[in-house]
Design a binder for these strands. Structure first.
Lengths: 188, 188
DNA sequence: GGCGTAATCTTTCCAGCGGTAAGTTCCTGC
DNA sequence: GCAGGAACTTACCGCTGGAAAGATTACGCC
């Protein structure tokens, strides 16, 4: 075992992603990750700073994944974009929580901000397909367009309600049905 | 200081509620609460079991508060009921998170379940006022009515997005404006 | 009135956590 | 081939939640 790991950053992120996906964000222990990577528990201080730094890097990756999922679903229309959003949340609950739980990440991290903007753009293109006659401004933030914000809120709200265990439905397929029903009540 | 506190359960809940409201759920330390109540850190094991038990009891109280807020807002119509929901979340973020963050509470606790059902009923009466001609079934769960679920999702989604720091708006009043705009796109 | 039992609370201990500080090893540029 | 900085380790600190065992009090029952 060499003194210098070589690609510790990558190894840590991968190990951390596994732990988070399996046991949730709260269960992520730097020491456990370090053990799994065969490294002392203070080794990645240099790469990430503190625990929040690790989570921030992980979250940036997560935003890309969510944006990709929504984009793929969006090829089949606006409604399926929303469904894809909800599916992502229900199928990868811990990853999703990491993205939106307050206080977990460093909000000012450049990579994180960029990843969030990518997601915002993806959401806007989805809404543009829903109400084409509106001449939606693709450059605008979804937070400044009431319709886009409504769509995002429905998808996001349903997803978080499902994760909270408030909905009777648990399986992704069941939740997807609920998502379609709720999204159908959105009017341009 | 008597050996038996007298009303430890009440004292602990009050102290815990203060800590949560001030510093967030994650900052709630049983030891800190115990110190504040002038009691050893294992004293309330008997009353609540473990940490989760304390949070569960706290959450049950919180559901009542949220339901009351929504009911009050609902007197001015459906839209204001939704706005009240969002306001509650933004004005008391930690309390709100406690109610909906996965894994924090014991989902099977009878008091918690009852409190959740009370909230569900309140939400349904709000929706009934929105679409009176639908002859909404007040006894039905909001999760089985697509319109009710859509309304709940919009309010809940907007609230959680705001708490996540994704929206530019931070002040309750600003968020309330966004809530009205988003809710306005919901059609019976 | 007194006694036994159960409820309540304390003391003590444990392993694990994140973070800091100081020291060691290795790579890289000159 | 050597300085200097990057990468990593070891040792330590205070904190946490929980388990176990003991002390104290309340209370029902005879």
């Amino acid at each position: 075992m060499p003194y210098h790991h070589g690609d510790l950053r990558r190894a840590v992120l991968q190990a951390a992603a596994e732990v988070v996906a399996r046991d949730g964000v709260d269960a992520l222990s730097l020491r456990a990750v370090a053990r799994q990577a065969g490294v002392s528990h203070t080794a990645f201080r240099h790469h990430f700073g503190d625990r929040r730094g690790v989570l921030t890097a992980l979250a940036a990756e997560g935003y890309h994944g969510l944006a990709a999922a929504v984009a793929t679903g969006g090829e089949q229309g606006f409604l399926e974009a929303g469904v894809a959003y909800v599916r992502y949340a229900v199928e990868q609950p811990a990853r999703f929580q990491l993205l939106f739980r307050p206080g977990l990440v460093d909000e000012d991290d450049p990579e994180l901000v960029a990843a969030r903007e990518e997601l915002a753009r993806t959401l806007m293109t989805g809404v543009a397909g829903f109400a084409p006659e509106r001449e939606t401004d693709l450059a605008a933030a979804p937070t400044s367009d009431p319709l886009a914000l409504g769509a995002w809120s429905i998808a996001h709200g349903l997803a978080t309600l499902a994760l909270a265990g408030v909905l009777p439905a648990r399986e992704p397929a069941e939740v997807a049905v609920l998502a379609r029903g709720a999204l159908a009540h959105l009017a341009p």
